[in-house]
Amino acid sequence: MSDFTVELLFGSNEQAYPIKSEAIRYLGYRKSLPDDITDSLIDKCSEELCAVVSPKCCYVRTSVEFPDENITSFGFGGIKSHALYTHLQGCSEVILMAATIGISADRLIGKYGRISPAKSVIIDALASSAIENWCDSAELTLTKKDKLHCSRFSAGYGDFPLSYQKDFIQYLDTARKIGVTLSNSLLMTPTKSVTAVIGIGASSRTCSNKCMTCENTHCIYRL
């Protein structure tokens, strides 16, 4: 057995409650609002989801180095990515984190996928908001002593290759710590899970609007 000293953070269910307005945005409503019937269905689905979320997070705080241009290193070899390199400039440390709201959300989405696609789609959107909310909440706890830190950055953003998901999962021992596993095609299970790096350091920036830094300007969810 291996037992790297990865720390754990368990949340209360409230910390992983979905934010309704966010879920509605994920459902494709832009400026309009759902009608009353849809709205009450969203509330009902939200109640079902809130009852089963189980927020967990594991993380490591470690140093970050930039051995070469566009190369970032925090313990598992150099990562070649301009986006990550730029994002973390000025940081001396990083927090590598993995978070999940647990497998029950997948079961609920799967169950309704077979009997009510409307509920399935709504719970999927709510669960996406729930994991974001949990990550925000975990991030706040993990960085509360650090006045300056960057927003979360994940494998798959910009040119930060998704293949590094493997290193995150292995390094943070997520299967054992919080039950997050990776499929051969780099999908995480539970699906409502996130791995990310948070940069910490004197000259780093905070970013309140995640959409503004994203390169995908055609995204239908862009604020």
């Binding site: 459902l27 494709g28 409503y29 832009r30 309009s32 759902p34 009608d35 019937i37 849809t38 269905l41 969203i42 009510s116 696609p117 409307a118 789609v121 709504i122």
Partner: peptide, 14 residues
């Protein structure tokens, strides 16, 4: 025409 959204489309389908 983007006056009806995915949840409604699916509720109608059901």
């Amino acid at each position: 025409e983007k006056t009806v959204f995915l949840p409604q489309l699916l509720m109608s389908a059901e």
